[in-house]
Amino acid sequence: MPRLSPDARHTVRVTVNGRALEGEAEPRMLLTDFLRHKLGLTGTHVGCEHGVCGACTIQIDGAPARACLTLAVQADGADIRTVEGLAPEPGRLSILQEAFRRHHALQCGFCTAGILMSLNWYLARTPDPSEVELREFLSGHICRCTGYVPIVAAALDAAQRLRETGEQR
């Protein structure tokens, strides 16, 4: 039974966007800080550190989750996806990302990574959501810029294009 003392740093190993990565973390280090400041993945943003705003949403073991409500040591061994892993290749955007750009579904972009990670998961399992379902699902995120109208439009548009192309991600 591993017992990690508070002052020492411990190696945390995770798979992020398909790559095995590791970094040092004290037991109390939040996964947000670990991803951003230890692994250099600053695309995941910190908005409230108490699980309400949704900006830090990532995928942990295949489901959307708040990185700020998770300790890095809890995630040891986990399979993580972040916004950095969404685009198919540098210079190209995914269908969902393209829809966001087309619909002006972001302004400052600070909440966007979390919303993309949630929608990426949701649209894969709910290919044809209604607007009401989408709005309910997205209520786990706060966007202060857009009023949500273009986000919902982009998600519906992306869902349709994903259905047409059969692309998963």
């Binding site: 950095e84 969404l86 685009a87 990302q97 972001l106």
Partner: peptide
């Protein structure tokens, strides 16, 4: 037109103060 800002912001390449 599409915003020139968006490709970076959508891919986690924004450069906010804490980044």
């Amino acid at each position: 037109i599409e915003r020139v800002e968006d490709a970076a912001l959508l891919t986690g390449r924004g450069r906010y103060i804490d980044d």
